[in-house]
């Protein structure tokens, strides 16, 4: 399996070349185009309950689609819903990544996707909800973001502060605490940051350059009120 990002920038697409018999799982609706040798199957990853919990708990799609090169090699074009960059990670089987609910685009068949409950404070204040995706296994993982993706590399015990709504993915070797952006409660919110995540290395943190929630609030003022 080989993957390549086409048109990098705001409106990218991923081309995945599949050898005969290979398959890739993708977020439902992510397929843009594919060779006629590719079969599209709908699959409840993690079984019915797993799919159900993913749907209700993380807000991710109930079904993932599996694209299988069952009749010979072929290629698949995949794209996310929102404008923003795509990043391709190679999971080595040891590294695990936590991915916020909209971040997953596609992954090799061998990667494992689970819904994971966060701790209370992270779930309540972290801005990703109580449940996130935990992705492990070995193979290609394709993430998408809103805006550009920026990678932060943390050495052991190195700290970094991230606005919680800009998180895309982070490795399981990092840890983070939720804290107020400034020392005072009022200033915390008037500064426009509210809560932030203090990450501690080692590991990687992927962040997105735009905040979907703020963008939604901004665009709302231009939407004509119906009725």
């Amino acid at each position: 399996m080989k993957s390549e990002i086409l048109y990098p920038g705001a409106f990218p697409m991923v081309r995945v070349d599949l050898a005969a018999g290979e398959s890739i799982k993708a977020e439902s609706g992510a397929m843009v185009a594919c060779s006629p040798t590719i079969d599209i199957e709908s699959k409840m990853e993690g079984g019915f309950l797993g799919a159900l919990s993913r749907k209700f708990l993380t807000g991710e799609k109930f079904f993932f689609q599996t694209l299988r090169a069952s009749r010979g090699s072929g290629e698949v074009l995949l794209a996310p819903t929102v404008p923003g960059e795509i990043v391709i990670l190679e999971l080595d089987g040891v590294n695990e990544y936590m991915v916020q609910k909209d971040g997953f685009l596609a992954g090799a068949d061998a990667i494992v996707i689970e819904s994971k409950m966060q701790s209370l404070s992270r779930g309540l204040l972290g801005g990703e909800g109580f449940f996130i995706l935990k992705i492990s296994g070995k193979g290609t993982l394709v993430l998408n973001s809103f805006g550009a993706i920026h990678k932060i590399e943390l050495k052991p015990d190195q700290e970094y502060i991230v606005d919680n709504s800009h998180l895309v993915a982070w490795s399981a070797t990092t840890s983070y605490n939720i804290e107020k952006a400034t020392s005072g409660w009022v200033a915390s919110f008037t500064s426009g940051e509210g809560f932030v995540c203090r990450f501690r290395g080692p590991g990687l943190v992927y962040i997105q350059s735009r905040n979907p929630g703020s963008f939604g609030a901004w665009i709302r003022q231009f939407i004509p009120v119906s009725e």
Partner: peptide, 19 residues
């Protein structure tokens, strides 16, 4: 042999070296 740990250090990548 399958890696069972990640090693971090100055000369390793930030995501750690599988070992």
């Amino acid at each position: 042999m399958i890696s069972n740990a990640l090693c971090f250090g100055n000369e390793f990548p930030a995501s750690g070296a599988p070992c």
